[in-house]
Design a protein around this nucleic acid. Structure first.
Lengths: 248, 248
DNA sequence: CAAAATCCTTGACGTAGATCAAAGATACGC
DNA sequence: GCGTATCTTTGATCTACGTCAAGGATTTTG
């Protein structure tokens, strides 16, 4: 349910195959046991919908493997992606019965779910979980606002470059990155999904990807595997924000 | 720090002239006293900056009267508004030392501030304040995502209509609204601020405002006072989202 | 009350990205 | 191996919105 740098340093959550950035960062073993008691797994195929906007959603979850998206649509079918869920990201909101957006798997997707009621109870008993959730939600809000800048003011080329930079950065924590700016990753999104992310059409996305390749900013192997020979060059293209980004 | 319907039903916070949606919704009198002890007021003139992006921000605050904006900028000066603060809205984030965005007064502005350290301490002691803050942050996130749909997929005319509908709705709780859809309000934003909100240029905003007037969707008295003869008509123009909006 | 800011409107024109259309890649089933 | 479906690329054209420019309205200042 977010988009930023993910340190992925949280301790393992019981026997759960993923490090629950969401709920485990400061968990005591006792709490981990309680989380384990209420968790279960669900898997989805590419294209499958996890929940429809407006539907009751009686669980919260974090992504174990795969990619999911949050999307919003207008009556006439125009759609805008409003969230991109990568492994360790969290979906769902304690205190809200219904899902505000469509949640869709774009790849094979495994989610670790917690039934909402017991999760909320646990949250009520352990204040630091609520605090952690607040922290995460604030991160998401920052990401959403960065995204707003992209949607409102960046050119198509800058949008593409920014998206690639974001995905590359997320992958960088896991994947190989040479000391130079060279890095490679797979883009788990179709051109259409990229377009929905960026507020463009898929044709424009395709054209701009070709243009970036032509200009040597990126290399493409097949359609989805991207190589960034010089990360700084990509960031230049992305026209990243002034105001220096805020200090830690 | 958000954009939705604000019921404004929270009890008064001590002698504070505003109902602190943020921190008082479920406050005990004891906690109110503690909040009162650490609060102070600051006022700003139109155009004045409350904090610069990146600067240390050692308080959280809620807007008492007036309007403020959160903006982000690219190096070349392109700017995007990412938050609109109306009375009762909350700014600032416990746990983060620096402000991520520029906060600027667009009218005369009075803020009720709480020094961050004591506020955080209080939050640590009273879990429901953290919960309330989480709730508010989730509301903001929803608003940000609605805004993303606007920025990414709506036409200029729809953008304007959506903005007017949002402001009208915020005002509706305070202002007069006849049983029919007729309503009137003052727009505390310049054309340029509207443009920054909507990801447009000020010329396009001006043209679309004129077009909406010409088409009888709105009436204008002077530049800032807007009359909406038929609110449903405005909502049609705004091309509001499908998926029915989620049920309460 | 003139002079100078601001803020807003309107026009003429250019362009980035949308739309429409066709065809190449790649994968999948039989 | 061939047909079908999905995804992607590329081209030709259109258009909504941006850019540049001029001129009102309204307020502020001296």
């Amino acid at each position: 349910m977010s988009l930023h740098e993910v340190p992925n340093i949280a301790p393992r959550c019981g026997d759960c195959p993923i490090r629950h950035r969401a709920v485990c960062a400061r968990c005591e073993t006792d709490e981990l046991a309680q989380l384990d008691a209420i968790k279960y797994y669900r898997s989805f195929e590419p294209g499958q919908t996890v929940v429809w906007a407006g539907d009751r959603m009686d669980f919260v979850a974090s992504v174990v493997t795969g990619v999911a998206t949050l999307t919003q649509t207008l009556e006439d079918g125009r759609t805008q992606m409003v969230g991109l869920l990568l492994p360790s990201d969290f979906v769902g909101r304690p205190g809200r019965p219904n899902a505000p957006y469509n949640v869709t798997a774009t790849t094979d997707l495994l989610m670790c779910c917690f039934r909402k009621k017991p999760f909320e109870d646990l949250m009520g008993r352990t204040p630091h979980i609520a605090q952690r959730l607040l922290e995460m939600t604030l991160d998401e809000l920052d990401a959403a606002r960065e995204w707003m800048l992209l949607l409102g003011r960046k050119t198509a080329r800058e949008k593409i470059a920014s998206l690639l930079a974001i995905v590359a950065r997320r992958d960088a924590s896991l994947n190989l990155r040479t000391p130079s700016g060279r890095m490679a990753f797979d883009l788990a999104l179709t051109r259409e999904a990229m377009a929905d992310y960026l507020g463009l059409t898929l044709e424009t996305v395709s054209r701009q990807m070709s243009a970036l390749r032509r200009d040597g900013v990126i290399e493409l192997e097949g359609k989805r595997h991207v190589i960034v020979p010089d990360y700084d060059l990509l960031l230049d293209e992305a026209g990243d924000d002034a105001d220096g980004g805020y200090l830690p």
